[in-house]
């Protein structure tokens, strides 16, 4: 059934992506590919991976934008983009077969590959480019929010987050229930002015982006600079073994 759930999902699982922290390292995209090429939507086909024009299916892609205001001040913003698991997902309602659906329990938008006819209309309906056609399999693929990881009881609890979240070295990605105002992600989004992408498209995305923090203006004081040298800390031998402490004592003498 490709109509959207009649009752709004109780949970709206999604991501909060901090554009202030992201350094554009592409680690989230790589780990996404790594997990999902063996996950529910497997494989994430590559075309000509070692050829002249490598191409393939990715659920997460990292763009880099530059902004420039009238004063000539510019900033570079790294911008990861994956499925936003929209409340009013147009990719779901356009699907003629019912392959594309939004889960009632947690709002995740998924594709049933067994009945997808590969008409590509969902990729036309999505404003964000979240859906990619797999030429080899003849079906549409998309981010599953790692549905096969976040509920996987064989994994330690702290690992039950999407691959992109667990791998981000800067902590720019957070995962949680954006329908619950008391969840960490909702609080984070509220505190930092989280926004939706292309609200004018009427898709009501669940994912939120946090804007880069404003640049510091005005005169700088020497305290603003990073310390020239870290303060030297004496080796703490409290926890060192008896032998090591003895050797240390002898050699230091």
């Amino acid at each position: 059934m490709t109509s959207l759930p009649k009752t709004a999902p109780a949970k709206k699982l999604g991501l909060v992506i901090d554009l202030d922290i992201c350094v554009g390292c592409h680690a989230c995209a790589v780990n996404c590919k790594e997990w999902n090429t063996g996950g529910k939507m497997a494989p994430l086909t590559d075309l000509e991976p070692y050829g002249g024009k490598p191409d393939g299916v990715w659920f997460n892609r990292i763009h880099t934008f530059e902004t420039e205001n009238e004063a000539g001040t510019s900033r570079t913003v790294h911008f990861p983009k994956s499925c936003l698991h929209c409340d009013d997902a147009p990719c779901v309602t356009v699907c003629p077969t019912g392959a594309s659906y939004k889960r009632e329990e947690d709002g995740i938008v998924l594709v049933n590959e067994d009945i997808c006819i590969g008409c590509k209309l969902c990729s036309w309906a999505c404003p964000y480019g979240a859906r990619e056609f797999d030429e080899n399999e003849g079906v549409m693929k998309k981010c599953t929010l790692c549905v096969d990881k976040i509920y996987n009881e064989n994994l330690p609890e702290e690992s039950r987050v999407p691959a992109c979240v667990s791998t981000c070295p800067t902590g720019a990605r957070s995962f949680g229930d954006l329908n619950d105002p008391d969840s960490d992600v909702s609080k984070l989004s509220a505190a930092r002015g989280g926004f939706a992408l292309m609200p004018e498209q009427g898709t009501n995305p669940v994912n939120r982006y946090l804007p880069p923090r404003p640049k510091k203006t005005g005169p700088t004081s020497p305290d603003d600079k990073a310390p020239r040298m870290l303060t030297h800390v004496e080796a703490n031998d409290d926890k060192a073994g008896l032998l090591a402490s003895w050797v240390d004592k002898i050699l230091s003498a």
Partner: peptide
């Protein structure tokens, strides 16, 4: 600007594409 939500910071332009070759999109 509306696609990235970065309009407050000025004019938005692409500085780096996610990949070197054309993808499906």
């Amino acid at each position: 600007e509306s696609a990235t939500g970065l309009g407050n910071f000025g004019k938005v332009s692409l500085a780096g594409s996610p990949h070197g070759e054309d993808n499906y999109l």
